[in-house]
Design a protein around this nucleic acid. Structure first.
Length: 290
DNA sequence: AAAGCGTGGAC
DNA sequence: TGTCCAAGCTT
């Protein structure tokens, strides 16, 4: 089963969100920033951070010059701060090695820190209008349902996923809009939890034709958070973001008192990730400001 | 290749 | 309240 591009594109023109990074005036670097921020993070939370971010640092070189600590602070509580660290590293590479211009080809994009299979293609497609398949979790779900008649996508398999979407992609000129529309359909209508099939613009859907069979996948392991090292890392980083310079170890101790061993482990992993540095005097700081 | 990595809104 | 999940990447 295939997807008619005209009905999908008509729906997108009518119902698609007016997201700021979709504006034609937005440059490739700013699109890259949006894609990194959107990794595993809802649009609503990215919106205000991205808007302030690109106003402050419109280019890769401006971001690189800001330094990793300020970038980590501006990232705020978007989550997964390793993304912010890598985004700064990415800015350094783009500014230094690519003349402050984001590469246009997927292969080169893939070499950038924090840029993987999805983000590389998203930038090539949305910033440079290339007809490459852009496969995120939304697209995988829409294809699983509309094309394969299954409630959920299987485990990610890049080669097969790209091939699946490649056969759907229309003519070059509309490919970027088609990919944006596919993602938008997954985000707004063909959602994970409660798909709104009554609002679906697609006239053909293998999942519907099959009678909406439920998922046969084994239940996913719950992603625990409370009391994990992740939460402790978040607390420790919170302290350092709020401070404007290095803090003594006791300040970090106070951020997690229930389990000192866990706190030490979290701090060690932050140091290993380069998200925290130890100063000459044995205090702790965000990278580059000790 | 499975696991680790933040955070908060919705139900 | 607890569970699910949101434009993934890296090792």
């Amino acid at each position: 089963m295939s997807i008619r591009s005209t009905e999908l594109l008509d729906w997108y023109d009518r119902a698609g969100r007016d997201l700021p990074w979709r504006d034609p005036s937005v440059n490739a670097w700013q699109i890259l920033v949006s894609e990194i921020m959107l990794q595993q993070t809802p649009v609503a939370r990215v919106l205000p951070v991205w808007t302030a971010w690109v106003a402050r640092w419109p280019t890769a070189s401006a971001t690189a010059a800001a330094g990793p600590a300020e970038v980590l602070r501006a990232w705020g509580k978007l989550g997964y701060p390793r993304r912010a660290k890598r985004l700064h590293e990415c800015a350094v590479v783009v500014a230094r090695d690519h003349g402050d211009t984001v590469p246009a080809d997927v292969e080169t994009l893939l070499e950038l820190p924090g840029v993987g299979a999805y983000t590389a293609r998203a930038v090539a497609c949305f910033a440079y209008r290339q007809p490459v398949p852009v496969v995120d979790t939304n697209v995988r779900r829409v294809v699983a349902r509309a094309v394969h008649g299954r409630a959920e996508a299987g485990a990610p398999a890049a080669t097969r996923d790209h091939a699946d979407v490649s056969v759907l992609l229309p003519d070059d000129a509309v490919a970027p809009r088609f990919s944006a529309a596919l993602m938008e359909l997954g985000a707004l209508v063909c959602t994970a939890r409660s798909p709104d099939c009554g609002q679906c613009p697609l006239s053909s859907c293998a999942w519907r034709d099959a009678g909406y069979p439920p998922s046969t996948a084994p239940p996913r392991r719950v992603q625990r958070y409370a009391g994990t090292d992740r939460q402790v890392r978040g607390r420790l980083l919170d302290v350092l973001r709020a401070a404007d310079s290095a803090v003594p170890g006791t300040a970090l101790d106070a951020a997690w008192t229930v389990d000192a061993a866990q706190r030490d482990r979290a701090l060690a992993s932050l140091l290993a990730d380069g998200l925290v540095e130890r100063t000459r005097t044995g205090w702790y700081a965000l990278p580059g400001e000790g």
